[in-house]
């Protein structure tokens, strides 16, 4: 087995007296997609922020390529090749594709105080990077980000991360706000990133999307890893039940149908 690109060893994170993460141990290897599943409030966001260098773990270790690392700020994590792409792509709706692609790392030409931003080069590289990911609809770097679809924005953000040398790609609910077609789009991009040898951490609460691309799954419940398994070990129903914290889908269905029968579809007063 190769050394994991990124590994967490019993990481705890507490904010004052509140323990948010409890003994989290995870590994992700190059060319592997690790799906982090969990309901709202399970600690997914805190975990991402810890990986991205926003928070420091209270206890435990973060290892990259087997060596312990510590991030003081998000920039440190980025410099080590950890890129986070947020739900809405983390891009600037009113900027052009070329400009937003290179924000903070603008290509320039010229000399001294007359260094100018190289629009042509930026546009060419940005459009090529996105098209390499199969988004052929994007062909003009002067278009504004706000005019792209949600899936295209996500793809652009992923292409950007890869272009700037990311080795670990953290995708924070990339498909949550998307329609079925757009989500499929993003899932293809995730596969492409994996094929190129990136370690991908894919955070979602949509089991279908996770099962479509994941190699390795971890379910978070109340800040702890409740289950850790690889592809094919569990069915969709089992995973959904796990995420709901042991409450099975069948229980939920029974609850809803009893509400329907007794109170015109409103929850019965007793359960409120």
């Amino acid at each position: 087995m190769t050394t994991p690109v990124l590994e967490l060893r019993s990481v705890d994170k507490s904010f004052g007296p509140i323990d948010v993460l409890h003994k989290i141990s995870l590994k992700v290897r190059a060319g592997e997609v690790l799906c982090l599943l969990g309901d709202n409030g399970a600690g997914k966001s805190t975990l991402i922020k810890t990986l991205a260098g926003v928070h420091k773990p209270t206890r435990g270790q973060i290892l990259m390529d087997g060596k312990e690392v510590s991030f003081d700020r998000p920039r440190d994590a980025q410099d080590m090749g950890i890129a986070t792409v947020h739900q809405f792509g983390g891009t600037f709706p009113l900027m052009s594709i070329g400009r937003s692609f290179f924000v903070g790392a603008e290509p320039t030409k010229g000399w001294g105080p007359f260094k100018i931003y190289d629009r042509k080069k930026a546009n060419e590289i940005a459009v090529k990077a996105v098209q390499d990911f199969g988004i052929t609809r994007v062909d003009d770097g002067d278009r504004l980000i706000g005019g792209l679809s949600g899936g295209e924005r996500q793809s652009l953000a992923i292409a950007r991360a890869v272009h700037f040398g990311a080795r670990v790609l953290i995708l924070d609910e990339p498909t949550a706000a998307l329609g079925v077609k757009q989500a499929a789009h993003v899932l293809r991009i995730v596969k492409e990133a994996q094929r190129r040898g990136l370690a991908v951490i894919f955070i979602t609460h949509q089991v279908m999307h996770a099962m479509a691309v994941g190699d390795h799954f971890a379910v978070l419940i109340r800040g702890a890893v409740a289950a850790d398994f690889v592809k094919g070990q569990k069915s969709r129903e089992e995973i959904t039940d796990l995420m709901a914290g042991g409450e099975t889908m069948a229980d939920l269905e029974a609850q809803i149908s009893s509400d329907l029968a007794t109170a015109d579809g409103h929850p019965s007063p007793a359960t409120l």
Binding site: T91, P93, L94, V103, A105
Partner: peptide, 23 residues
């Protein structure tokens, strides 16, 4: 025509992303 202008637009677009991008 310079990168500084780009930074100003990025700042107004999304401050958090701008900071993450190293501005």
């Amino acid at each position: 025509y310079t990168k500084y202008g780009n930074w100003i637009f990025a700042l107004g677009g999304d401050r958090e992303s701008a900071r993450n991008a190293g501005i």
